[in-house]
Design a protein around this nucleic acid. Structure first.
Length: 127
DNA sequence: TAGGCCATCTGGTCCT
DNA sequence: AGGACCAGATGGCCTA
């Protein structure tokens, strides 16, 4: 019988060592391409995070963000945007109650200029 | 030199 | 069947 189960599908035809080598080369090449595409996406995200560069945990000024820092910081920033939106809606609600929907100045949203530092040095927490 | 970060290879599993 | 996705292993490079 088939010891260990018949799950592993064996190739229709046995491959010669040369063919095996060629197959490996193709698989490796695809994997490299996949990881390179991932890195292109990571760079695009990094580009949007440049204001963080000098604040990256453990990163001296001018140092590019590591992958992990890029992801953690991006997540934190998204979270911050979410709460900012929530706060903005709350303020807008106050204005419309006090002055009517179409009247009055729109409350100024105060952004501190640049990106808030969410994760300080040594803080790489996913919470 | 130890630790962090990274690219690559590899074998396994999942999906089309 | 073949490609995509994933995680473990390994070795190189760099910095404190």
């Amino acid at each position: 019988g088939l010891q260990g189960g018949a799950r592993a599908a064996k190739p229709q035809k046995e491959l010669s060592p040369e063919e095996q080598q060629e197959l490996r080369r193709k698989i490796n090449s695809r994997e490299r391409k996949r990881m390179q595409d991932l890195n292109v996406a990571m760079d695009a995200l990094r580009e949007v995070m440049v204001p963080y560069e000098s604040h990256a945990p453990g990163a001296p000024p001018g140092r590019r963000l590591s992958k992990i820092s890029t992801l953690v910081l991006a997540r934190n920033y998204i979270l911050l945007l979410g709460s900012s939106l929530q706060e903005m809606r709350r303020l807008l609600g106050e204005v419309s109650i006090g002055m009517g929907v179409n009247a009055g100045p729109v409350p100024r949203l105060l952004f501190a200029g640049g990106w808030p530092l969410i994760a300080g040095p040594g803080q790489l927490l996913l919470t």
